[in-house]
Simulated assay, not measured.
Amino acid sequence: MTAGPEAEESPIPADSSASPLPSATLGADKKRSLEQITLLLFITVPFVALLASVPLAWGWGVSWLDLGLLVVMYYIGCHGITIGFHRYFTHGAFKAKRPLRIALAVMGSMAVEGPLVRWVADHRKHHKFSDAEGDPHSPWRYGETVPALLKGLWWAHVGWMFDAEQTPQHKYAPDLIKDAAVRRVSRQFVLWTTVSLLIPPLVGGLATWSWQGALTAFFWGSLVRVALLHHVTWSINSICHAVGKRPFKSRDRSGNVWWLAVLSCGESWHNLHHADPTCARHGVLRGQLDSSARLIRWFEKAGWVYDVRWPNASRLDARRKDGVARREERTSQAA
């Protein structure tokens, strides 16, 4: 690894509490815990389903109902991760009314990417040591040669989740642990995983009034959907730290990967995010689609969120690389 720790605003809250924090979330920092075993199962099983989906779709097709369930459930979980787990709980890009705060915690949990507190702790540690020693999932972990980068891409994409080392949650997410409602949702990871997987077959079975409808809905709307969302999310850790354009200054190798923008709900505009971690919008240049930012804007207009950290031209220009600033590529804050 070549880059040093970032000098931008730290996403890690100061732990100034004088009394011990409440008991940590389900599994705490143990190497083997119930949610880790569950996560392992729902990494491998949905991935097998994703591989099987290609010949199945080619041979028998996929119904509009199954496709609709896949898309709807995908974007519920995706925005739960991008708006909730990432921009809100990890970086505090805005403040949310309590009902939306809990809803975002539940939506993110339904993406089946691990408990909220652990997800946030890992990501805050990633920002503290981005692409440097201590980063949980840098693709540059093993060096810069082609074989080393290939090994590092696998590590950043999925391998790091099987590492024995766990990020201490009390150190990196004390604010979330102290929130009883958030702590409860995080402990209920297995429950929300079950709910997430059962909604598609329930809807499919009732809509077709058949077990076959429930089964195909479970395959496409649960297993394939979870696998696709997993690998898109993990691609932000791997691909977006190895390739992509870098118009903004950051002390790592985060890049913008345009072809992941729609599937990642705007997360693949990753260079600006690492240049300005608390910004509520990641796709700030002209033509950069960011559905997460659009939803945050709608939430703001509805009065559900406030104190949103939107970008502005001067803030962006201060983070641009020399010679890159162009007035026609200014923020779309007013959009």
Rank of each mutant, 00 (worst) to 15 (best):
A7G: 12
E9A: 13
P11W: 11
P11N: 14
I12H: 01
A14V: 07
A14W: 03
D15W: 11
S19Q: 12
L21I: 05
S23F: 06
A24D: 15
G27V: 13
L39G: 05
F42G: 01
F42D: 05
V48C: 04
L51P: 00
L51T: 03
S53D: 06
L56Y: 15
W58P: 00
W58T: 11
L67T: 09
G68Q: 13
I76K: 00
I76P: 00
H79I: 08
G80L: 07
I81C: 07
T82K: 01
F85G: 00
R87W: 07
T90L: 06
H91F: 11
K95N: 07
L104H: 03
L104F: 08
A105P: 02
M107L: 15
S109T: 07
R118C: 05
V120I: 08
R124G: 04
H126W: 14
K128Y: 05
P136I: 09
P139V: 08
E144G: 02
L153S: 06
A156F: 01
W160M: 01
D163P: 00
D163F: 08
Q166Y: 10
Q169I: 14
K171Y: 03
K171V: 12
Y172P: 01
P174V: 12
I177Q: 09
S186M: 07
V190Y: 03
V195E: 11
I199Q: 02
G204T: 09
G205S: 03
G205I: 10
W220P: 02
S222R: 04
V224E: 14
V226N: 10
W234G: 08
I236P: 01
I239W: 11
H241W: 06
R251F: 06
V257G: 04
W259P: 00
L260Q: 10
V262R: 03
H273T: 04
R281F: 00
L285T: 01
R286Q: 04
G287W: 10
G287S: 05
A293W: 14
W298N: 04
F299H: 10
E300V: 02
G303W: 13
R309F: 03
P311V: 14
A313N: 13
S314F: 12
D317N: 14
D317W: 15
K321F: 02
D322S: 06
D322G: 01
V324C: 02
A325P: 00
R327D: 10
E328N: 11
R330P: 00
